[in-house]
């Protein structure tokens, strides 16, 4: 064990991880080095636990680092990325946990991606194998998992397609013959057919109409209810409200609040001013945008990154608020009456 690994292990013990967590993330940071010496701080000090049967929604403005976080957990970041922190994935039935951030590519490719961690990617078209039909990709996944008979594989493939609202008549098509919405559903079917304990779904409902959004969200929820953990990355707050147990809000690469979904969407509302602003922008609420734009992740301010747009900012906010008790803000709002 290298000194670095020992340090990681010690940190994990002292971080107070939930015992039954399927995934336990601490201090996850991702930096992209750009030419000219600039650094993009895409994710900073992210931490959360995700238990069996639980759905955590990760929400936040476009470009705030949600997809980078998911890619980091799967070791799918490009070469100019530097990752630090720990992400412990519980081992199968009592086996030791795997630190996804420390695992080598061989381990990730052979035992993690698609097996212990499933992914519904944000751009499904790029994720499907172009030279094979949807049916053959589904059946192949079943074979790799269970090696069942041909008939059983066929049934499992059709069943998963049905659950993802992928029309059976399109199963024999190649990915390039699918519309964006269909490719999305094919990717969801592929994730549902797997048996991964942890599922990362990155915008799984983009481009779908409300009925299909609801159906897809419900299927993902059912998948989690069978004892799996679900991280749902989404802009669709209605979908998050429908199926999430907790909501994590990300702003400029940091998780700034984690709240139970019923409080977040209920009358009490979130406590972080950014989270409140995001909800107030909804068309069935005030429909007012948060003024200004998110900061550049390559030129973040010293203090709270939301300060230039925050109605509650004071001098105090020029030092960065710690993330404690599921919140990072110097002047959190009190639950609305």
């Amino acid at each position: 064990m290298t000194a670095e690994n020992v340090l990681r292990a010690l940190k994990a013990v002292s971080a107070g991880r939930a015992e039954d967590a399927v995934l336990s993330v601490r201090d996850l940071s991702v930096r992209f080095r750009l030419r000219g010496g600039r650094t993009v701080e895409a994710v900073s000090d992210a931490g959360f636990d995700l238990g069996a049967g639980e759905c955590l929604a990760l929400v936040g403005e476009s470009g705030c680092g949600k997809s980078v976080l998911a890619s980091a957990l799967l070791g799918l970041l490009p070469g100019n990325a530097e990752t630090s922190g720990t992400a412990l994935l519980a081992g199968p039935e009592g086996a030791a946990a795997t630190d996804l951030l420390a695992a080598d590519e061989k381990t990730l490719a052979r035992t993690v991606r698609g097996r212990r961690v499933g992914l519904v990617p944000q751009s499904p078209a790029a994720h499907l194998t172009p030279v094979r039909t949807v049916r053959s990709q589904l059946e192949e996944t079943v074979r790799a998992l269970t090696g069942t008979s041909r008939r059983a594989r066929r049934r499992a493939a059709e069943d998963a397609a049905g659950r993802a609202a992928f029309p059976a008549g399109h199963l024999d098509r190649y990915p390039h013959e699918l519309s964006g919405g269909l490719a999305q559903r094919a990717a969801t079917a592929l994730a549902l057919i797997g048996d991964a304990r942890l599922l990362l779904a990155d915008e799984p409902t983009t481009g779908l109409d409300r009925d299909l959004v609801d159906r897809t969200a419900d299927e993902l929820r059912r998948h989690a209810d069978d004892g799996r953990a679900l991280l749902l990355i989404t802009h669709d707050l209605a979908a998050a409200e429908r199926i999430a147990d907790r909501v994590a809000v990300m702003y400029a690469g940091r998780i700034v609040e984690i709240a139970p979904a019923h409080r977040f969407f209920g009358p009490a509302g979130p406590r972080h001013p950014y989270a409140r602003g995001l909800l107030d922008a909804l068309p069935d609420r005030a429909f007012t945008p948060i003024p200004g734009m998110p900061p550049e992740l390559s030129a973040l301010p010293e203090g709270c990154a939301f300060a230039p747009r925050c109605p509650l900012a004071t001098e105090l906010c020029s030092t960065r608020p710690e993330f404690t008790a599921d919140l990072a803000c110097h002047h959190p709002e009190h639950p609305r009456a």
Partner: peptide, 17 residues
């Protein structure tokens, strides 16, 4: 045509405005 389908709530409200 679906101008805001892949955007968050705040950016959606800003573009509509």
């Amino acid at each position: 045509d679906e101008m805001t389908a892949m955007l968050d709530a705040s950016t959606t409200a800003a573009l509509v405005a």
